[in-house]
């Protein structure tokens, strides 16, 4: 496998999928973020921390515009990061993934990784809009999230290795992962913060987050599969 071809294919796929994710967030997630941050602003006016003046709104508007542009940049960064992991796992596992099509292989792997490192952690610790998280609990919430993410992700990796080594009754590996992650789900404590805003807003935000993250994983799989098929970074041509 040629390093440069491989890296180029993986990084371009991650970057493009990340940009798609960023733009999808602008359309689907940002309206919920604006509403939630509007509630934060009202709380600041009520507490006297800020004053409801034209200057405030001018500064706020410029700041939010910068953050929305940052969302695209953040999408690119996260796309490259997650795409790097995805490409790496794809390179190691594509020979055991069923199907002759690189796109179908990538989509299947994306479904597995979406489930283990996004959806299962999302079920336990779902995305929340601003105003929900208490700044004083950020260290605890981060620890809980990272521990559960690691348990689910490394659990999936461990049981997939077991799956490859098993000669018979391979479905037991899936069952083993389900039991393992189920126990972690029950044992791990929930986020400590109470939600004090409308659940319609929270659930709408979570649904939008779920949709755009799913768009990201599908996009990364399709783009990686297409690029892999076209450039075949795993192929080595020798003259004899």
């Amino acid at each position: 496998m040629k390093s440069l071809h491989f890296l180029t294919v993986v990084l371009i796929a991650g970057l493009l999928a990340g940009l798609i994710h960023g733009f999808a967030n602008i359309v689907l997630v940002e309206p919920f973020l604006d509403t939630a941050i509007g509630i934060e602003n009202q709380r600041m006016f009520t507490s006297g921390e800020a004053k409801d003046t034209p200057e405030f709104w001018k500064t706020y508007s410029d700041y939010r515009l910068w953050q929305k542009q940052g969302s695209i940049i953040g999408g690119a960064m996260l796309g490259v990061a997650t795409g790097s992991l995805f490409g790496l796992v794809f390179a190691y596992s594509r020979h055991v993934l069923p199907s002759q099509s690189e796109i179908k292989k990538a989509l299947l792997l994306a479904a597995i990784m979406w489930t283990s490192i996004f959806f299962i952690p999302f079920l336990k610790y779902p995305a929340n809009p601003p105003t929900v998280g208490d700044p004083s609990t950020i260290a605890l919430r981060t620890t809980l999230y990272v521990v559960f993410l690691a348990l689910s992700g490394f659990g999936a990796l461990g049981f997939s290795i077991l799956y490859k080594k098993m000669q018979r009754k391979r479905s037991l590996a899936f069952l083993g992962y389900a039991v393992f992650v189920g126990i972690a789900f029950i044992v791990m404590p929930p986020y400590p913060d109470k939600i004090t805003i409308s659940m319609d807003l929270v659930n709408g935000f979570r649904m939008a987050s779920l949709i755009t993250m799913t768009i990201y994983w599908i996009a990364n799989a399709i783009i990686l599969g297409l690029l892999w098929k076209k450039f075949q970074p795993n192929s080595v041509t020798t003259r004899i």
Partner: peptide, 16 residues
């Protein structure tokens, strides 16, 4: 943190 704030929330990471 501030620049990637919206992506952080949207991707499910804990924030604030």
């Amino acid at each position: 943190h501030e620049m990637t704030h919206d992506m952080r929330h949207a991707s499910g990471f804990p924030c604030h």
